[in-house]
């Protein structure tokens, strides 16, 4: 367990590195990207890995992201991460929860529609990328063997 956690953290780091340094993968656009006009100091720890990845396809672990599972498959060609596919992502919902319905309120629903982007701050989720990183990290672990 200890060892796997250690190698895991190194790999996550490497996955990040591989990701941020790759420009071809379609997934790259999903990760937080620094905007050129912002004053950003990168704080991504980069652990140098002397090992190249072995070519092939590697299936990552299934990661529970609370609301479902994420699993990715990493493809290595020319010893570089060339593609990431999602084999699983959150899609099933079991709503069998114990919630008191005695004060069920009338909630308002609406179809979402685009609004002006003229805002001070934007609120959005980052959780999925964590599960994604974990699954990818495990796929890349296999690629290093």
């Amino acid at each position: 367990m200890k060892k796997s956690i250690l190698s895991f953290s190194v790999l996550i780091t490497f996955a990040f590195y591989a990701f941020f340094s790759s420009s071809k993968s379609s997934i790259v656009s999903q990760l937080p990207q620094p905007s050129p006009d912002l004053n950003i100091t990168p704080f991504i720890p980069i652990t140098a890995s002397s090992k190249n990845f072995k070519n092939g396809g590697y299936t990552g672990t299934v990661e529970d992201v609370y609301y479902g599972n994420i699993q990715v498959k990493a493809t290595i060609s020319s010893n570089k991460l060339s593609d990431v596919q999602f084999l699983q992502y959150p899609n099933d919902k079991d709503n069998s929860i114990k919630i008191s319905r005695r004060a069920m309120p009338i909630l308002k629903s609406e179809a979402i529609k685009s609004q002006s982007n003229n805002v001070d701050i934007v609120s959005g989720a980052t959780e999925t990328s964590v599960g994604f990183r974990k699954s990818l990290g495990s796929a890349l672990t296999q690629a290093q063997k």
Binding site: I112, K113, S114, Q115, S116, N117, N118, V119, D120, I121, V122, S123, G124, A125
Partner: peptide
């Protein structure tokens, strides 16, 4: 403060 909630289907958009 004016805060936009991101469109989960299109990260560039505010809904």
């Amino acid at each position: 403060w004016k805060i936009g909630i991101k469109n989960p289907f299109n990260q560039e958009e505010i809904v």
